[in-house]
């Protein structure tokens, strides 16, 4: 089992004719993802990696209904592409693009809430259910199917942790990047809930970082509602306040979102917090 994504999910790629869109469409197909169409205004009628290209999402959906869409378009076009996908009936939207304007993100999330659409990102590597399907840009080779769910705010740090798990013989049910921006769709809590009720997931790794209070809110959920073991790793212990550490969301502002506050909240909720990244594998092993 897995969450959100399995091998039956049909996918559309928005921005399929761009460099990133083309390359990652190939990678997704190679992984076994079911891509039913691509969208690229002005390029309808072409094919990318054998996938038909349409003018709009609506047109693509008329030919074949899709469940999910992945967005590779430039930041200034993301709002339009996202609203288009949601209005056309897409239920899961993965926004890979980074540098999406904050106000655009708020409008996207507002519409998603009203249309009951699940959004992964923006500024994410996407989602993968190893051995089944992937929607995103993560390297295919490091994932193994298995019982551990991974949810993270950061990309390469997830790869690092997953690589470690896989090397230790621990596979993953689903691995998902929430995105590094200040405003993203799914939160830690949304995903923890799904892992909690997924029979294919036995333990969860959450990879957080400084900034915001998503980890603190997740801690409260874990304390009150979660029965499965959670292991956490957090980045940004050494980050000075007021500096944005790469991700728009990774900033300690007005004393909020500190490393210490997150560790304290998670520890109090019974989460094992690894202080060094290579401790995660061992902790998960003991939890299984």
């Amino acid at each position: 089992m897995a969450i959100i994504l399995d091998d039956k999910i049909k996918i559309i790629v928005q921005g399929i004719t761009g460099n990133q869109g083309q390359f990652h469409t190939g990678q997704m197909l190679a992984y076994g993802s079911t891509i039913v169409g691509g969208v690229s205004p002005g390029k309808a009628g072409q094919e990318v990696q054998g996938v038909p290209v349409y003018e709009t999402v609506e047109e693509a959906m008329q030919v074949q209904t899709a469940d999910a869409s992945v967005i590779f378009v430039p930041a200034k076009l993301v709002k339009d592409a996202s609203l288009e996908a949601m209005e056309a009936g897409i239920k899961t939207l993965v926004i890979i693009t980074e540098h999406v304007p904050l106000h655009d993100a708020m409008e996207i999330m507002d519409y998603a809430e009203k249309k009951q659409v699940g959004i992964i990102g923006p500024n994410t590597y996407g989602i993968i259910s190893p051995g089944k399907s992937k929607i995103g840009i993560m390297p295919n080779s490091i994932f193994r199917p298995g019982p551990v769910g991974v949810v993270a705010r950061s990309g390469t740090l997830s790869y690092e942790i997953v690589f470690q798990l896989s090397s230790a013989g621990i596979g993953q049910s689903t691995v998902l990047g929430l995105g590094g921006d200040r405003i993203v769709g799914y939160s830690f809590i949304d995903i923890l809930e799904k892992f909690e009720s997924d029979p294919g997931t036995q333990a969860v790794v959450m990879v957080g970082e400084i900034g915001g209070n998503a980890e603190e809110e997740a801690a409260q959920y874990i304390r009150e509602r979660m029965s499965k073991a959670v292991v956490a790793f957090l980045a940004g212990k050494s980050a000075p306040p007021g500096k944005r550490m790469g991700h728009a969301g990774a900033i300690i502002e007005r004393g909020k979102g500190t490393f210490e506050s997150k560790v304290a909240a998670l520890s109090a909720a019974g989460v094992q917090v690894a202080s060094l990244p290579w401790e995660v594998g061992e902790m998960v092993k003991r939890a299984l």
């Binding site: 950061s154 990309g155 390469t156 740090l157 997830s158 790869y159 590094g180 970082e209 980045a235 790469g246």
Partner: peptide, 9 residues
Amino acid sequence: ANGAGITMA
């Protein structure tokens, strides 16, 4: 490093 999270770590 490559990636914000891994750079922070």
